[in-house]
Design a protein around this nucleic acid. Structure first.
Lengths: 220, 220, 220, 220
DNA sequence: GATGAATGAGGCTTCATTCAT
DNA sequence: TATGAATGAAGCCTCATTCAT
C-alpha cells in the first residue's frame, strides 16, 4: 500500500450523487467461478491468452471486473485453474477408453490409446497449446511429468513383460509415442484438418503401425 | 551461434540518481544489430521473453532505447529474427553432419540425424523453448512448416524409394521422429541431464532403433 | 510481471491505425521534474495529498501520465522529494535570519528565531501539514530529529553558557519552544488568520516573552 | 479505554481455499459496535489507518463485512467515533486528576495537569498519532478546537484572575503549553522511552518549571 | 545514424459500499 | 439484524513506440 492515498470513497464522494443503481445482481448461484473459467477459455481460444485481459473476461462473463477477484486471487490463478481442468479432463477420457478393453488385449489398448489421445487432443488442441505453450517454463512440467506419459509407459512395460512387445527403454518409447502423437496432431491442426475424422484415423493408424512395428519382438 | 559472450554482469543498473552521459560509442555500426540480438537472447534466457522489455535489451546492449528501432521495426521483429537465426543454425549443423556420410548409407544418415539433432537441440534447449513456445500461435508455424521436418521427410522418402525402408507415410513418420526426438530432449533437460553425453547417446540409439525397426521392410 | 500477458503493442495493434499524432513534445527543458513537484504541491494544497492522484498531477503539469514515472519512481518518491525541499527551505530561511544578528545578541536572536520560524511556517503552513502530518510515522522523523530543533537547542545552550539564560534542560526547552510555536501557528491558521501580520507579531511576542521569562536567571 | 484486549493473534486468515461457514454468533448485539471499534483500533495500531480496510476490520471482529455498515454509516464514521472516544478518555483522566486538588492550589493543579496529560498521552501516543495525524485536514479540528486546550486555558485564566499568575494571553499560553507538552511526549516516544517513569517525571517538571516561571507575576 | 525524453494506451488490483436473502 | 457476493470507480504503474535534436 501507498504511504498515503487514503482509502477512496471518502473524499471521492464530494457531491452527494453516490453511485447509480446497478443492474440486478445475485443471479442464480450457478458457479460464477465456472462461468469465469468458461468465458476465459473461450476468449483465450479466440484471441490468445496474452491478448485477453481480465476486463475482457469479466465482460464476456457478464460480471463486474471486481467479481473476478472474488473468485481468483489473480489473473495467473485463473490460468492455473484452467490448466488443471484440462489435464484432469484428458486423463479421464483416456482412462475411460483404456478401461473398455481387456487387459490382455495389448495391441487393442495401444491402438485405443493413440486413437483416444489423438481425439482428445485434437478436440481442443488450440486450447491445449494456449494453456501449455504460452506459459512460462515452470508451468509446463504438468505436461512433462505427465500422468499421461507415465500411464503409457506402464502399458508398454506390461506388454513387454507379457512378451508381446520388445522395448529396451519403455519410458523412452512412451515419450516418443506421446510427443510423436502430439506432433501429428499439431500438424493436422496446422492444416486446419483437426476435424477431419478420416485424417484422424489415418494418423492413429500410422502411429499404431509405426510403434507396434517398432516394438515387434525379434523372435515371433 | 555466439550465445556465450562477455556476460558483462547482471546489467541491472539500480537506477542511479542521475545517469552519466553515455559516451558516444563508435563501434562498427555493422555489429549493432547483432549485439542487440545477442543481448536480447541473453536476457530472454535469463528472465524470459515476456519479462524482458526493449529497455532491458538496449540497456544490456549499451545503446539508447531509440537505437533499437533503427535496427528493428518492432519488438516482435527481433523475436522473429532470433527464431530465424536459431533455425538456420540448427539446419546448418544437421546438414553438415549428414553431408559427411555417403548418400547410400541410409541408416548411417538416419542415425547421424538423430544424434546431431539431439545434440544441437540439447545444447540450447532453453533458448529454443523460449523462442518457440513463449510465442503467440501465429509465430509457431516456423516449427510446423519446419525445414527440419521437410529435410527429414526427404531422407525417409529417399530411403523408401531406395528400398531400404518401408513407410506408408514418410511425412508422418518424419513428424513423429522429430517430435519424438524433441520429447526425449525435453525429458532429459527436465532431469537436468542435458549435458550428459552418455544419456544423449542412449537417447539417440533408442530413437534410431525404434524407427529403423519401425521402418524395417516386411520382406528383408 | 505476469506469467503471460505478452508485451502490449503487438497484438493490440490489430488495425493499422497506429496511435494518432501527439501534441508537441520536448518543450523547453525547464526541469520537468520541478514542474511536476510544483504542480503536485499546488494540488496537495488544494485538495489534499490523499485525494490527489498521479493523474491529477500530470494533468496539472501538462504532461502525459507516463512522464511522471520518468522523473519519479513512484508516487511516494514525489512526496519524499517535496518534504526534503520543504525542510531545506525552512532551515535556510531561519539560518539566514539568525545570521543577521550579532552572536552576543541572545535575546535578539531568540526573538528573531520565533519571528522567522513563525513567518516561514505560516507562509506555508498548510503545505507543511500536508507533507508531514498526512504521512506515515516513519516519515515524520524529519520533524522530530529536526535540524531546526537541534539548532534551537544550541542557541539556548549557548545563551545559558553565556549566563544570560537559565535552563536546566536546554533540549527540552527547545522542543517546547518549537512545538509551542507550531501550535500557535496552527491555531492562527485554524482561524484563517495566517496572513494577519499583526497577529503574527503578537504571537511572536508572546512566545518570546513567555520563554525569555521562563529562562530568566534567578539572580539577575 | 480498553485498547488492550484479547489480542486473538494476527488475524491474517491466509485466505484458505474455501472458508468454513461462520457459525452465527449470538453475542450481546450491544457489544458489536464496540467490538468493531476495538478491532479497528488494534489494526490501526498494527498496520496503520490507511492500510487497514473495512474487510480487515470485520474479519478481525469476526463479523461479516456487511455488518460493519449496520453500525457505522461509513469507514470515516468509525474513525470519527474512535477519535471521540480518545478525546473523551483523555479529558476524563485529566479532569479526575485536577478534581483531586483544591481549587485554590493553582500550582498544584497546573503540575497535575502536566503530569496527567503527559501520562495519558504517552500511554497511547501511537494511537493518538494514528487517529489525529493520519487523517485529512478536515478531521483535525478536533485537536484545534480542543476541549483540552479550552480546559487548560480556563485554568490559566482563573489563576491569572486569582493573581497567582501573569499572562497577557492565557489562551496562547495554553496552546503553547499543550503543544509543548505534546512535543516532549513525541520526543520521548521517538527515543522509545515512553514507558520510562523517571523520564516522564523529568518532562513534567520541566514543563511545570518552565511555565510557572514564565507566568511568574512581575511583582511577587 | 543515435539519442532519450515524452507519450498514452492499457493492464492489474483494491476496496468502500450496496442489497437480496 | 446479519450476511457476503457483487459492484465498479479509481488508482498506480509499465512499456512499446515516436520524434525533435
Amino acid at each position: 500500500m501507498n504511504a498515503i492515498r487514503e482509502r477512496r470513497g471518502a473524499e471521492t464522494a464530494e457531491a452527494g450523487e453516490r453511485r447509480p443503481p446497478r443492474r440486478p445482481r445475485r443471479r442464480m448461484p450457478e458457479s460464477r467461478r465456472g462461468e469465469l473459467m468458461d468465458a476465459a477459455e473461450r476468449l483465450f481460444l479466440a484471441k490468445g491468452v496474452a491478448a485477453t485481459s481480465v476486463d475482457d473476461i469479466t465482460t464476456a462473463a457478464q460480471v463486474a471486473k471486481g467479481t473476478f477477484y472474488v473468485y481468483f486471487p489473480s489473473r495467473d490463478a485463473l490460468l492455473a485453474a484452467l490448466q488443471q481442468r484440462f489435464v484432469d479432463g484428458f486423463c479421464q477420457r483416456v482412462d475411460a477408453a483404456l478401461a473398455r478393453r481387456r487387459t490382455s488385449d495389448w495391441n487393442g489398448r495401444l491402438r485405443a490409446w493413440f486413437a483416444t489421445a489423438l481425439d482428445t487432443l485434437l478436440d481442443q488442441l488450440v486450447l491445449h497449446d494456449m494453456l501449455f505453450h504460452e506459459l512460462g517454463h515452470d508451468h509446463r512440467d504438468l505436461i512433462h511429468d505427465n500422468p499421461v506419459v507415465t500411464q503409457l509407459a506402464a502399458l508398454v512395460s506390461q506388454g513387454v513383460a507379457a512378451g508381446v512387445w520388445h522395448a529396451a527403454e519403455p519410458r523412452y518409447i512412451a515419450i516418443i509415442m506421446f510427443h510423436g502423437m502430439h506432433g501429428l496432431a499439431d500438424d493436422l491442426a496446422a492444416q486446419a484438418q483437426s476435424g477431419n475424422k478420416a485424417a484422424r484415423k489415418r494418423l492413429a493408424d500410422t502411429l499404431f503401425n509405426t510403434f507396434s512395428s517398432a516394438m515387434r519382438p525379434l523372435v515371433p
